[in-house]
Nucleic acid binder design. Structure first.
Length: 512
RNA sequence: GCGCCUCUAGCUCAAUGGCAGAGCAACGGACUCUUAAUCCGCAGGUUUCGGGUUCGAAUCCCGAGGGGCGCACCA
């Protein structure tokens, strides 16, 4: 037989013995243990298990007991076997469930015959069920004195190192399930994530916002300035974009009479991947009739503070070397005032473009020739002002030129009633008094079309269905968008957006 | 897209041009209070892949692939 073709065959018993310790052998060994149970008439994949207690509940009830105490309470528990320490006739096992972990104490003198057989077949990582009396060990650890033991499902693959866990970032992202079961810190990040999102929902409901769902597949992606993903709809034979923001549809719902709506929206932007950007990310957008952008700031501040308290119980965070304090209330500063402090002269969207370009050159801010003064000022904000920000601050009053969907201020038609919430040198939220004057919206879209004609790939496309909706009347409305992933990064004190996304976008795997 | 770094046993890491190693996990054994248990024994490798230089390559060179970081774009 040619040597090359041997690889693809399933391993024969001989090769298993030869290669004891390889992945195939480790897996074969676990399979064999499972099959031994089957032969003994024990089902290694029972269809259900009725547990009577969780680790968390038992700890809550019994922590603080003296050592060597028997409670008389019988509990049935289920979870993953995460540690096993044998002492001959006595075996200690750590069983981990969703609430925490508890020690199983398995004594030869107390366990059933079936429990003995199951114990013999166990490996790290197996799902198990156990029944026994709740006791404390001689060292005082709360334990189950096991009489019955069940295998609930076998892990046919070995777990990562119990002490170091899984550190390879590639493997952690691609096999998040392994990351979660092996690395408690990783699990903690996602616990924070989903608690924070639940808290945001609760707050929005308390404020009488209705949670809605708007299209992800859209004939034309709008509501933000970004490059979309495209796909094809077979039924209608049309090109579709994945949404870059839910904004336009949410405002149409306000036109329709939903005075307070929000959506926790997965958005898709066909752009770069780095520590703070993911092509697929989550934003919470909310729209409230009869409010303006000041109401938006109030709301955002409450959202972030509530999410922080609910998920972590604190308001101060350490990311790398940076200390951040979210204690309200946060300063609200005018963009133009702040820029003036930084560059030493007053800039305004009405200024001749040459003047603003001069400042850009002086401060090494890159720009494109087609940009107007408003966009240039925004760029100065983005590249030299934003990086100086640590604690939360609302930056207010952005140029209309970079805010095609926002109302201009009462005093100045070149500035928008718009804010951005900045924390730790990143934009966390954006909000404004919504532009609700149809003719003006049409004008803004024309301006964007002109930019697109000059080659701006991220110009906002004119959305005539949206304009038609505005013609039915959008009440004065306050809109906000909060970057949920970035909020979670802050709350869980991690530096990479991929650490807060369960399954971040990766190149397909070559092998499994 | 460009630059830099990285890839060794299932996992975590050594070996800097000279016999591919350790810890954990596994396997065999001892042990009724451990908790990164301990002790004895045993096994586990196409050093990501493909070329090249060399008496000799995990190591140096070229190319490919995966991943990370920085820049650019963006929130």
């Amino acid at each position: 037989m040619p040597k090359e073709s041997k690889k693809t065959e399933t391993p024969t018993p001989e090769t298993e013995e030869e290669a004891l310790g390889t992945l195939e052998a480790l897996s074969a060994d676990r399979r064999k243990k499972r099959d031994v149970l089957r032969e003994a008439g024990i089902d290694p994949y029972p269809t259900r298990f009725d547990r009577t207690a969780t680790a968390g509940a038992l700890h809550a009830e019994h922590d603080g007991l003296d050592a060597d105490v028997r409670t008389g309470q019988i509990a049935k528990m289920a979870g993953r076997l995460t540690s096993l320490r044998g002492h001959g006739k006595l075996v200690f096992v750590t069983l981990s469930d969703v609430t925490g972990s508890i020690q199983l104490l398995i004594q030869e003198s107390n366990r059933s015959d079936q429990a003995a057989k199951v114990l013999e077949a166990l490996d790290l990582g197996d799902w198990i069920g156990a029944e026994g009396e709740v006791i404390t060990s001689r060292r005082g650890e709360l334990s189950l004195d096991v009489t019955e033991l069940w295998l609930l499902s076998k892990s046919l693959r070995p777990l990562p190192d119990k002490w170091h866990g899984l550190t390879d970032t590639d493997a952690r992202y691609r096999q998040r399930e392994v990351d979660l079961l092996a690395n408690p810190e990783s699990r903690k990040v996602f616990d924070i994530r989903f608690k924070a999102i639940a808290a945001l929902r609760a707050l929005m409901q308390e404020e009488d916002f209705v949670e809605v769902e708007t299209p992800i597949l859209q004939p034309q992606a709008g509501g933000a300035l970004a490059r979309p993903f495209f796909t094809h709809g077979n039924a209608l034979d049309i090109e579709l974009s994945l949404r870059i923001a839910p904004e336009l549809y949410l405002k149409r719902l306000v036109v329709g009479g939903y005075e307070r709506v929000f959506e926790i929206a997965r958005n898709f932007r066909n752009e770069g991947v780095d520590t703070r950007h993911s092509p697929e990310f989550t934003a919470l957008e909310a729209y409230r009739a009869f409010g303006d952008y000041n109401d938006g700031m109030d709301l955002v501040e409450r959202m972030v503070v509530e999410a922080a308290k609910a998920s972590t119980g604190k308001l101060t965070f350490t990311i790398g070397e940076r200390e951040l304090d979210l204690t309200p209330s946060w300063p609200r500063r005018q963009l133009l005032d702040w820029v003036e402090e930084l560059v030493g002269q007053r800039l305004h969207p009405n200024d001749p473009v040459e003047k603003v370009r001069g400042v850009c050159k002086e401060f090494d801010v890159d720009f494109l020739p087609e940009w107007g003064s408003g966009k240039l000022i925004f760029e100065i904000y983005d590249t030299i002002l934003l990086p100086t920000i640590t604690n939360p601050v609302f930056v207010c009053g952005f140029p209309v030129e970079v805010s095609p969907l926002a109302r201009h201020t009462a005093e100045d038609p070149t500035l928008a009633d718009r804010f951005e919430l900045c924390i730790d040198a990143k934009e966390f939220a954006n909000g404004y008094s919504e532009l609700n004057i149809p003719e003006e919206q049409v004008e803004r879209f024309s301006g964007e079309a002109a930019a697109a004609a000059k080659g701006d790939e991220e110009a906002h496309p004119a959305d005539l269905a949206f304009v038609r909706a505005l013609e039915f009347g959008l009440p004065p409305t306050s809109g906000i968008g909060l970057g949920v992933d970035r909020l979670i990064m802050l709350l869980s004190e991690v530096e990479a957006i991929r650490d807060v996304i369960l399954f971040p976008m990766m190149r397909p795997e070559a092998t499994h």
